[in-house]
């Protein structure tokens, strides 16, 4: 019985981590848009390449944040959560 419970905990943590990383789609699309527009801008005005690149990198980094929140949650679910949940289970069985 215990094995099944621990198995469910581990499996659900892994599933949750995978589901959390769906959030990676958003920053991907957003950064792609940003880079596409930056390329257009550089094509129109090659002389402000430096400014456009700096601003684009800043914007990409800010847009990446939502994806990184998901990543942090996924990392917590994989490395931290299973141990905690198994501990809680063990304590409740006692």
């Amino acid at each position: 019985m215990m094995e099944i419970a621990i198995g469910i905990i581990l499996g659900c943590c892994a599933l949750g981590a995978g589901a959390a990383m769906i959030a990676g789609i958003g920053p991907g699309i957003g950064e792609g848009n940003a880079v596409a527009k930056a390329c257009e801008a550089i094509g129109r005005q090659p002389e402000c390449k430096g400014d456009v690149t700096t601003t684009m990198l800043m914007g990409c980094a800010v847009a990446e944040t939502t994806g990184l929140y998901a990543l942090v949650i996924a990392i917590l679910l994989i490395f931290v959560a299973p141990g905690r949940f198994v501990d809680i289970l063990m304590n409740s069985v006692k």
């Binding site: 980094a61 800010v62 990446e64 944040t65 990184l68 929140y69 990543l71 942090v72 990392i75």
Partner: peptide
């Protein structure tokens, strides 16, 4: 929070 997570998440990932 977002500043810390951004930097840490990038390096750790």
């Amino acid at each position: 929070v977002s500043m810390a997570f951004r930097h840490y998440g990038n390096v750790l990932s």
